[in-house]
Design a protein around this nucleic acid. Structure first.
Length: 290
DNA sequence: CTCGATCCCTGGACGC
DNA sequence: TGCGTCCAGGGATCGA
């Protein structure tokens, strides 16, 4: 499940493998997850891939026409959703099942998008449209300062888990890294943002950045089928301390990791290290045990 | 503002 | 073996 570290891993792979290449032809399969498939077919042929950026969980392939630069600032926006994969392949290599886009490159390879569940998104967008997509996103978690992070936390009444998952609060954090960060910072997922004291806010900021940096260094987490640009799985799943560890002992204190639905998602936490809040709004209401 | 519910979609796990 | 059911989850959307 691609979150920031997995998407960053893909971006780094693409920078090495496809930047500088020109797209010759486009072949699309199922297109219900694309904003405007015709625009992709129409605009991409002839474009050179100038660079690959990441905005939270979004990938952007920056594109330009070789002579005229008609599409200055335009690009192919890709969100991998749950099961999306974007990687180059040799043309004579049989495409995997659920390959929905193939971009034939000028070096004889093709860039392929595969996505079983089609929770992803793909769109060719002009600069102004891209700005509209990115405008509502919050800061990059690895760039936000501690003071900024704590300040933004302070006036939020939402549960801290919901805030971490909210792409308008921070961009790029998903369920795995939210739980791993909260475990490290010893903060219960149902705590309300505004109730975290400065020390806890600082601790969460530090935990989040450490977890993300380490996960990037490990090329992400491969839970079901995430593979990096070279087809290698990530390694970070071996270092998960909370996510997916229901019933297993907390490596810090030995208590059994618990799972509860918070913010509509499975949330894994240590009931001893991460103390549940007492207030009615933070506990009783909706921390349903699963 | 924040919440839960619902939908999108497929594969994998599980029970019978 | 096969069928039904549930679950996974990022994000959009809707109503409370």
């Amino acid at each position: 499940m691609p979150e920031l570290p997995e998407v960053e891993t893909v971006a780094r792979g693409l920078r090495k493998s496809v930047v500088g290449r020109t797209i010759l032809t486009v072949a699309l399969g199922k297109t219900d997850f694309m904003d405007d498939p015709a625009a992709i077919e129409l605009n991409l042929p002839g474009c050179r891939i100038e660079g690959v950026d990441r905005y939270g969980k979004f990938l952007l392939l920056r594109l330009s026409r070789a002579p005229g630069a008609e599409h200055d600032g335009a690009g192919l926006l890709v969100h991998l959703g749950m099961t999306g994969r974007l990687a180059p392949a040799e043309v004579d290599c049989v495409p995997e099942k659920h390959t929905h886009a193939r971009f034939c490159l000028d070096d004889g390879r093709e860039l392929r998008y595969t996505d079983a569940r089609r929770f992803g998104r793909m769109a060719f967008l002009e600069r102004a449209e891209l700005e509209n997509v990115f405008a509502p996103l919050g800061s990059e978690p690895l760039e936000v300062s501690r003071d900024d992070f704590c300040r933004r936390l302070r006036d939020r009444r939402a549960r801290v888990k919901a805030l971490l998952l909210n792409q308008g609060f921070l961009r790029g954090v998903g369920n795995i890294y939210a739980d791993e960060s909260l475990w490290r910072a010893k903060i219960h997922p149902t705590r309300l943002g505004a109730t975290l004291n400065p020390k806890e806010g600082a601790s969460l900021h530090r935990a989040l950045q450490e977890v993300l940096r380490q996960a990037i260094a490990a090329r992400g987490s491969s839970i079901s089928d995430f593979l990096d640009g070279d087809g290698r799985p990530g390694e970070y799943q071996r270092r998960h301390r909370a996510y997916g560890r229901e019933g297993k002992p907390c490596v810090r204190c030995g208590a059994k990791i618990r799972r509860a639905i918070v913010a509509g998602r499975s949330s894994f936490f240590c009931p001893r290290c991460q103390r549940a809040p007492r207030g009615r709004s933070e506990t009783r209401r909706r921390e349903r045990r699963v």
